[in-house]
């Protein structure tokens, strides 16, 4: 695709610069940690650790490209996890059917919450900062009410494999390789699916166009309201998937899951990945690299035994530096 190369040329420069910095960083850390960082088992661990953040950040990427923001995703992880655990415990099913219907219940709740987030944004033109801030409170409140403030332990063991198992574990065992966690498979499938959705479909093109110029998009006959609504629904669905994965990992749906730094971490991954908060620009691949950078940094600092309080300071500085560098690059490169 000769035509794609030119446009790609713009973002490839950015990716190129980021890749060089990243490789230097990895080599440096690896030397400092006496080779522990690049061990396959550690790479597998990093990928598992970033999967939650990346899947949340996928939905946030769509929202931010339309110049919106979704603050409710952390609470939705909590709510969906609790709802799914309750659903799983009340269903008289087992095996795959149980997993599928449980997941469907979570997706329904997450999607509905996203729809409710979008409604006042689309119909009343309220700022998404406000509507999703309200949803953040509402969803968390409901989550605590449903769970009575305590984790809902799963009665079935059907989810254990999703939580702690490995994809094609027999193969990796036979080859004496570290296994690939199921979370990583979820992350890759979601990443590819939503990347294609954003880059190759009409819906994705409309998302980018609305973020670039909403009025021009409306006058070009784009259904702006529907497109924006779907964007918040996607964000809710991504939160539900993460809620599902956490529930499987902990064998319970806890109302406290997702109430830490999850939402801010996702926004950080999106922004570090080169998506503009002003809207109109962004890629899922960029977000993946954002999540990977943040995750690798966390992992490296743990390996190097850096004080966890200092880690917070470093991480904040890196987020600021990454975005500032991107801005400078746009200005001078």
């Amino acid at each position: 695709m000769t035509s794609g190369a030119k446009r790609g040329g713009v973002s490839w420069t950015r990716l190129g610069v980021a890749a060089v910095v990243f490789v230097l960083f990895i080599i440096g850390v690896n030397v400092a940690a006496n080779g522990a960082f690049l061990q396959l088992s550690n790479v597998a661990t990093v990928l598992q650790q970033i999967s939650y953040n990346f899947i949340l950040a996928i939905g946030e990427t769509f929202v931010i490209i339309t110049a919106g923001i979704d603050l409710s995703i952390g609470s939705l992880v909590s709510l969906c996890g609790v709802v799914m655990a309750l659903a799983a415990n009340s269903l008289h099913l087992s095996g795959f059917a149980l997993i599928a219907i449980t997941l469907a219940s979570g997706l329904a709740v997450g999607g509905l919450a996203g729809y409710v987030n979008a409604l006042p944004v689309v119909k009343l033109n309220l700022p998404p900062f406000i509507t999703t801030l309200a949803m953040m409170q509402i969803a968390l409140g409901i989550s605590y009410m449903l769970s009575r403030g305590r984790p809902v332990a799963l009665q079935s063991s059907a989810f254990e494999n999703t939580g702690t198992g490995f994809f094609l574990g027999g193969v990796s065992n036979a080859l004496h390789l570290p296994g690939i966690h199921y979370q990583v498979v979820w992350m890759l499938v979601a990443g590819v699916f939503f990347s294609v959705l954003l880059m190759r479909t009409r819906f994705g093109r409309y998302v980018l166009a609305i973020g670039g110029n909403e009025e021009a998009s409306r006058l070009a006959g784009i259904n702006v309201g529907l497109t924006k609504t779907l964007v918040y629904v996607i964000s809710g669905l991504c939160a539900a998937i993460v809620g599902f994965l956490y529930m499987a990992l902990f064998s319970s749906g806890s109302p406290q899951t997702g109430t830490g730094n999850e939402m801010l971490g996702a926004i950080a991954a999106v922004v570090v990945g080169g998506t503009s908060l002003m809207g109109g620009r962004g890629t899922i691949l960029g977000t993946f690299f954002g999540a990977l950078l943040i995750g690798s940094l966390n992992n490296a600092m743990n390996l190097l035994d850096i004080n966890s309080y200092l880690q917070m300071v470093v991480l904040g500085g890196v987020i600021l530096a990454a975005v500032a560098l991107d801005e400078l690059r746009k200005r001078y490169l």
Binding site: S3, R7, R205, L208, A209, G212, N213, E215, A216, S217, L219, A220, I222, G280, R281
Partner: peptide, 16 residues
């Protein structure tokens, strides 16, 4: 303000 998405390519604007 109303006719173009300035941050998009010629192709993307033409087909929008």
């Amino acid at each position: 303000a109303q006719g173009l998405v300035l941050g998009m390519t010629v192709r993307e604007n033409v087909t929008l």
